[in-house]
Every structure is written in structure tokens, then in C-alpha cells.
Design a protein around this nucleic acid. Structure first.
Lengths: 159, 159
DNA sequence: ATTACTGCAAAGCATTTGCAAATGC
DNA sequence: GCATTTGCAAATGCTTTGCAGTAAT
């Protein structure tokens, strides 16, 4: 898909994130009396190797037929664990397919989704966060997390 | 895609909304060389009779076995038409099931979703809209529509 | 009379699950 | 050596679709 001006491309951030995050996931699993398995590590690593968002079934397909086989079921199961542990967030919307992205080291953010190119543009806004806080308070509501998705199109650069 | 030019009804009663909206849907269908059928009217009416949001499959199940039979396929097809015409909006999120709600006479709004009760609390915020506008502009992005969902829980009031 | 629409049931398809075999601890 | 996981594949469950009959124009 888009490959051009990757603003993160010069930083080996993903790899570093992985190095930092994996031990945390290990702890998480231990805390649940769950096991540190090869399949889980493969999935975890693959998720961190991906940039931005990805489709669950896409990842599953990729891993189901690579050299590091991980079955579809296991990919979905591991993605659930990673969500529970807070390493990925689900961003499923108008699409039937579940999308995920890893958030460790990124911080929460939301997206503008270009319907022409499928591109995901990240943004985050304290103004909106504050306002949502206010709204929640007003309704006696405690937020666990929120999701904002703006559908539309990126304007063409001046022709 | 905004609705209700100038005619801000003070009475957002569902029945009245239906009375106002149905002719507009008729026009929409005529404009597409589509037919005004009994099934479509039943679905349309049922949607307006519902308060707030509902699940597509729920509506389909209801109509598939009532006195006014409308088959599942037709319900889904009609819901698509209504979405295209702007009478309902899809609010699908963490759930596999598609949710809809009619927006005619309500105006766009977003939701706090209580994970304990499944309750949908509506809100709308000019502050957020303005901020989103600003963000879109900043990214050279044209919004078609957006969706904000806040997951969490409503605090117990008393007791 | 046309031709779109409906109903039904079968097909799609992402995701989940049951169970025997494999693997972590 | 046991319990948890994995890998299949079969099952789910919402949604879509093909087709023949039905209804709208």
C-alpha cells in the first residue's frame, strides 16, 4: 500500500519496541499462569514488525503459510491475549474484518481513514480528550477507552 | 448529506419522523428507478419505531417472524438503501453484529457505550466537531462522516 | 407485460471452537 | 509427567447472493 514518506521508517522503532515489550508480555503471561510458547512469540514479533494497522485475517493468512507456521486459530487467540494485555488495540469499523495495530510505544491515537486509498492517518488531540472527559463526567460515565474514526478522503495535492 | 434544511421539528417523535421521512425515502427510491414496495415500507416504519440503536439481525429476526413478514435478505437490502439515502447510520464496532440507528430528525451524534448494561448514551459536542474540522484541515482531509465511541461503564448512581 | 423485488435457502467469510497431538514447565 | 497450547477442520453466525416466483409500474 503506501510506502513513500514513512515518517517512522528511519527509526528502528518497531524492533526496539519489540525488545522492550516482549518481556512485558512474558510477565503478563506468567501472571496468568499461561505459557510462553513459540507460536506466541512469533505472533508477537510479527505484530511489532507491522507498521500501523493490519487486518487480523491478513496476519493469520500470512502466518499460516510462512516458514514459521502459526495456525489461524492461534493467531486469533494470541491477538486476544495481546489486546487483553494492552499491546494492541482493535480498530474495527465499517469493515467486517478486524483491524489491529500495536500501541506500545506509540501512545493512543485515532485515525482519519482515506476511502480512496485506504490510508490511515494518525492524529491525537488533547482538546478532544479533555472534552470527552468532560462529557463522561457529565454523564457519570467512566471511560475505559474510546475510538474516533473519521472517514473521508485526502485531498489531491494541487494539480 | 445533512438533513432537515430549516425544518427543525420540535417534536422528534418517532411516528412524526416517519411521517416526514417516508415521502423523502419515496423520492429517493423514485430517483433511483426503484420501486416503492410493501416490504420496504414495513422495514422503514419499523426502523423509525425503534428508539435509538438496534441490531440489523435483531430487526431481521423480528420481521422474519411477525405478521408483516419481511425476509432477512430484504431487511438487509432495505437497510442498505436507507443508509445510502442517509436515514440510518451504521454504528458497528467491537461487536460482530451490525448496529444501526435512524438519524432523521435526531442529527448526528456519538455514543458512550456501557459495557455493563449494553446501554448506549448519546452525546454530541460542537467542541469536538470543531476540533475534528481543524485536524482534517491540517491534514488536507475532507471528512465524509466520523464516529466516536467511548467504551466504559456508567457509574452506579445511588443505592 | 415488463422488470424489479421478494423469499428462501444456500453460499460466503471472518472468527471461534472441539479435540487429539504436541509442547512448555 | 501433567496441563496448557496448538493445529486442523468443522462449526458459528451474521450477512450476502442466486434463482424462481411475485408484485409494482
Amino acid at each position: 500500500m503506501s510506502s513513500g514518506e514513512g515518517k517512522f521508517s528511519q527509526v528502528p522503532e518497531d524492533d526496539q519496541s519489540f525488545q522492550e515489550a516482549w518481556p512485558l508480555f512474558v510477565d503478563f503471561l506468567k501472571g496468568k499462569d499461561s505459557r510462553i510458547t513459540q507460536a506466541r512469540q512469533i505472533v508477537f514479533e510479527r505484530v511489532f514488525a507491522r507498521h500501523d494497522h493490519f487486518r487480523a485475517d491478513d496476519l493469520a493468512a500470512e502466518l499460516a503459510s510462512g516458514e514459521n507456521h502459526v495456525s489461524r486459530g492461534t493467531v486469533y487467540r494470541t491477538l486476544d491475549l495481546m489486546t487483553e494485555a494492552g499491546f494492541v488495540q482493535k480498530i474495527r469499523d465499517d469493515d467486517v474484518h478486524a483491524h489491529y495495530e500495536h500501541i506500545y510505544g506509540h501512545g493512543r491515537h485515532d485515525h482519519l481513514i482515506c476511502e480512496k486509498t485506504g490510508e490511515f492517518i494518525e492524529f491525537s488531540s488533547p482538546v478532544i480528550s479533555d472534552e470527552l472527559d468532560r462529557i463522561c463526567r457529565e454523564h457519570g460515565f467512566t471511560e475505559r477507552f474510546h475510538r474516533i474514526v473519521v472517514f473521508g478522503a485526502r485531498e489531491d495535492k494541487k494539480k
